[in-house]
Design a protein around this nucleic acid. Structure first.
Lengths: 343, 343
DNA sequence: GAAAATAGTGCAACCGATTGCATTTTTTTT
DNA sequence: AAAAAAAATGCAATCGGTTGCACTATTTTC
């Protein structure tokens, strides 16, 4: 009962006394085929339990109708929203997606890029790992004309479409907000400045300070987005003399860990230190006090990336003109930064 | 420069004056091929930029070396750990994985199951959505002899291997712990009792109460694992008269939202209400007070599920005998439940 | 009513890797 | 040095769907 023979178009053809070509066309709703024939074929297919053989099809058509998605991590709200956005668009367009994640490791990123390449995805959507600066592993795609769209973590001088937010502006806003709350010594806690997103947020931070005649502080760099890194960062801040009165943490989870650590040391939030995070992750509403943060609309990022990629795959000229899509982000003010109760 | 012709084994064959059969064997490290020839073929393949055509191969071999992973959601710590565990094992065994998530929707689950089936995965690892009780969408797999392994959210009377924890025991432990902390009125906040995991935890909860001569309270049921559901649950608890002195929430994020809501209403944790969660998610350490919870070892679940599945695919008899694997879980005590300071 | 246009189907050659079996080459045995 | 055994390679069919082109049947046009 298991191991039943697989039904093919030839079986359908035989049963209906038609050629396999007709079956193939009928199943693909080819208008050249008579409507009645089409109906008959499709119902017979269902009846026999036929399943389309994607290999045979891809082999012949030289296209997989599959899009690769290469992300740096899976375990964040932001990324899952992006995936949801991508899925929404790709599903509607009849593409399947293959998800791979690199755990912030350049080795895994390279391996995944290569793997998806060999799987012959029709296009790729990618967000780079922390330290990726060399994009050679995407060269095979470019050389073969397979479109690649980057989002969030991108390499700015690499000539591929990108979907991002204005990280500079977001960094500026976050810092400006802290300044407006009366902060004089604002420390930036961030991941590797090699990565565009952190680099730009840093620039925004610096310029906001400069424009308000405040001086820059030593940047605290974290190695990862896990709990331990967050704790280490917080401890570094605590050791500073004098204690900063504001910190801008470029990641909500890290910010939450910082707040928690500060509290353990008797530092009050926001009275002693005001905190602004980044991403509007779910933790930003769990931590106490709730975290002021930058809303990073993952769903829209994903939708735009997918739309752009599909446009490129289909050679849509409107799309191929666009190099960079900037999605709107915004500051969400909560208690962690509100020194001045504007109530 | 783009659109270069794809290199095939025939190109390599021609260049080396060999047959395509030899090339194919050489690339697959077939021992029948002379070692030197093998080396020559492999280096020529690299040189020419050959890439293996998985479609042609799968078409011929009738096997994809791909495993489908169907999860209810992506955005939890637990699930990403499971994925990491699966990935570890499958990668080592040379299988690729296809991830699909159903967002707790039975429709999407059905669609995904069907999609992965048509993609001809060699096996499937799945965790069911909230309300899935009808498993007909897995029938095609069973009928065709494609192994399916369930984890976490399973259907107990469905005859397929399962990897789970002892949810009954965990529920009992959590409740027993609250009782030991002096709680007399313990409320259970949980998702649909139709789902095995919640059903078993509920049983454990009930039995612990019974064994301690406490009476059962009305169960608060949440509709989803999002913030809003958590809030609604907390408000229901708050309305209870008298107020419970302990709650067992079968999901950490929901527990965190509850704690937060309680605090807004001036309810002290754990003094007024002691709280125990479930999963040991990262939020359990962010929320204040930190959450007592059940550690649910995702990585191990994933590894076991993958190992079991691959065993079934390969027809390994040791594996095909095993019906259910129960992985160890444990209670982690933190401040949210510690009424008695045992310091 | 014949010619032309249109609709509907079929033929057969792909796509590229795999593999049972046959054949050739090399090595070992006697 | 011939026979036997072992090693290396080749032949050719196969997996199943797609598609350019050819062909037949039906409609339309004049």
């Amino acid at each position: 009962m298991k191991e039943k023979k697989e039904i093919t178009i030839y079986d359908i053809a035989q049963k209906l006394n038609l050629s396999s070509a007709t079956i193939s066309r009928a199943l693909n709703d080819n208008p050249a085929i008579n409507k009645d024939t089409r109906k008959r074929v499709q119902s017979t297919a269902k009846e026999l339990g036929y399943r389309h053989n994607a290999f045979a099809s891809s082999l012949r058509k030289q296209a997989t109708h599959t899009i690769g998605v290469l992300v740096h991590e899976l375990n964040s709200n932001f990324i899952t929203s992006v995936l949801a956005g991508i899925e929404k668009v790709t599903t509607a367009a009849g593409f399947d997606i293959l998800i791979a994640h690199s755990s912030e490791s350049i080795e895994k990123e390279t391996a995944n890029a290569s793997n998806l390449y060999h799987k012959r995805v029709d296009g790729l959507i990618a967000s780079l790992s922390f330290e990726t600066t060399n994009l050679d592993h995407f060269k095979p795609y470019i050389n073969k004309g397979i479109p690649v769209v980057f989002f969030d973590r991108v390499e700015e001088n690499f000539d591929s479409p990108k979907v991002i937010i204005d990280n500079y502006k977001a960094g500026y806003q976050a810092t400006q907000h802290l300044i407006e709350q009366g902060c004089k010594k604002i420390v930036l806690v961030t991941a590797s400045l090699k990565r565009n997103v952190y680099f730009q947020r840093h620039r925004g931070y610096k310029d906001a300070l400069y424009d308000n005649s405040l001086k820059e502080e030593k940047v605290v760099t974290i190695k990862g987005l896990n709990e331990q890194s967050g704790r280490e960062a917080a401890l570094q801040v605590i050791k500073m003399k004098p204690l900063p009165d504001g910190i801008f943490v470029t990641n909500d989870f890290t910010a939450a860990v910082c707040i928690q650590t500060f509290k353990e040391y008797g530092i009050r939030i926001p009275e002693d230190i005001a905190v602004v995070g980044f991403n509007n992750d779910v933790v930003s509403k769990i931590v106490e006090p709730q975290l002021t943060t930058i809303n990073y609309p993952g769903m829209e990022i994903g939708e735009n990336a997918a739309r752009s990629l599909i446009g490129h795959i289909k050679g849509d000229l409107n799309m191929t003109q666009i190099q960079t899509i900037i999605v709107k982000s915004e500051l969400i003010i909560r208690d962690s930064s509100l020194k001045k109760k504007t109530k």
